[in-house]
Computed example of a mutant assay.
Amino acid sequence: MIEEGRAYALAIAMQHLLRHLERKGVLNQADTTRLLDASIEQLNQLPADRMDPESRADGARTLGLLYCPTR
């Protein structure tokens, strides 16, 4: 349970950071989407002996929280 809370808190903090960088013009929404897509791809490419399916799914859900809703 604690690990889930930590992952959620980290996702929220990163989401705020990404939005701040977008507002400042450092990143745009397309850059953020590409970055998150690459992160999910890297997560999915980890060998099965390095991450079990449940952890991989948790990681994917955490990364999914970071995507900015389309406007």
Rank of each mutant, 00 (worst) to 15 (best):
L63S: 01
I40C: 01
N28Y: 13
Y67S: 02
D37I: 15
I40H: 00
C68M: 09
E4L: 07
P53A: 04
R19L: 08
R56D: 00
G5R: 14
K24A: 06
V26W: 05
A9V: 14
E3M: 04
E22Q: 13
L65H: 11
N44K: 13
A30V: 12
R50D: 10
M51V: 15
A7C: 08
L17Y: 09
Q42E: 09
G25R: 12
R19Q: 10
R61Y: 06
R6G: 01
I40F: 00
R23W: 08
G59P: 03
R71M: 00
G25V: 13
E3Y: 11
D37Q: 14
I12K: 15
R50G: 05
V26I: 15
Q15H: 14
Y8S: 04
D37T: 15
L46Y: 02
I2R: 06
D58Y: 04
R56F: 00
L63H: 02
A13H: 15
A30I: 13
R6L: 10
A57S: 05
Q42G: 11
A38Y: 15
E41D: 12
K24F: 01
I12C: 05
R61P: 02
L46E: 03
E22S: 04
R50P: 01
Y8H: 09
R71L: 01
N44F: 03
L36Q: 10
A11I: 14
M14S: 06
L17H: 13
I40M: 08
L63V: 07
C68K: 11
M14W: 13
I40P: 02
R61N: 05
D49M: 07
A60H: 08
L10E: 07
D37C: 10
R34F: 09
L36N: 07
G5Y: 12
L17M: 02
E4P: 08
A38K: 13
L21E: 10
L10D: 02
Q45A: 06
E54Q: 09
R6A: 03
I12R: 14
R19T: 15
T33H: 12
I12L: 08
L17E: 08
E41R: 12
R34Q: 10
Y67D: 02
Y8G: 00
L17F: 06
M51N: 04
H16D: 06
P53D: 03
R34A: 08
A11F: 13
L21N: 10
R34W: 12
R71V: 01
P53C: 06
S55H: 11
I2M: 03
L36W: 05
Q15C: 01
A48K: 14
